[in-house]
Design a protein around this nucleic acid. Structure first.
Lengths: 125, 125
DNA sequence: CGGTATCCCAGGCGATACTG
DNA sequence: CAGTATCGCCTGGGATACCG
């Protein structure tokens, strides 16, 4: 029995794994965590690197990750203001797993896209 | 530079990791994949185990996972009909990572909830 | 620069009903 | 049993404007 299976056999609201997944199982959060490996990064730098994310959603996701203790937010009183985001020690313990997910995606994307084509051909509209 | 970072520096629509994450970074999908470790499982069995998922969303998510080649769907012509879901070989290559995520969540939930309380106290409404 | 505030709309989801 | 169909809400996210 896996850790998750222990968890979701418990009452819904009391399942900690579910509560944690609710907060992390989102593509922008994973992309941002991965982006923060290495040096601290500023808001607009992340925005540029992770193409397609809106300012609003980036801010929301950063706030969520900060609230969950995974990233830190440091303000430098320059003019205009500078803000740097970095992984916390807790966040750093998660990046191995996140990277593993990313590598799996890279490695298996061909199989996935092939499966999609096969599925779409055999399942008519 | 990690696998993901190589990826999102590419043009948005051409980033395969992003396309894969779009399909997998969702809590129900992860919970279902984890649930399918071990023996094949039937629709209503999953529905009972993963409390809180609606019939509609379970069906949608199963369809998505099947389309992406991660799970198989086998129909037995009993009366009434029986349908079993199981991991494919491709899906099986993903479960180690999914389990790692689940274990991380179990192990660090206390730190996460503590971080949330601390954040909420220092960030007034 | 690094955000909030406001408006607005598509679509995601739950609830309910129906079916092979 | 294992779904699909339909409806109606409601919120998540884009667009835009503004601010310390």
């Amino acid at each position: 029995m896996t850790a998750m299976q222990q968890a979701y056999n418990v009452y819904e609201d009391r399942c900690p794994t579910r509560l944690v997944l609710d907060r992390l199982a989102d593509k922008w959060a994973l992309l941002i965590l991965d982006r923060l490996e290495g040096e601290p990064v500023r808001f607009n730098h992340i925005r540029r690197d992770i193409k397609g994310i809106s300012q609003k959603v980036l801010a929301q996701t950063l706030r969520k990750l900060e609230r969950n203790g995974l990233i830190s937010r440091t303000i430098f009183p320059t003019v205009p203001v500078t803000v740097e985001y970095a992984l916390t020690p807790l966040g750093r313990t998660l990046t191995d797993t996140v990277s593993a997910l990313a590598h799996w995606a890279e490695k298996n994307m061909d199989a996935i896209f092939a499966a999609q084509r096969a599925y779409d051909e055999t399942h008519p509209v």
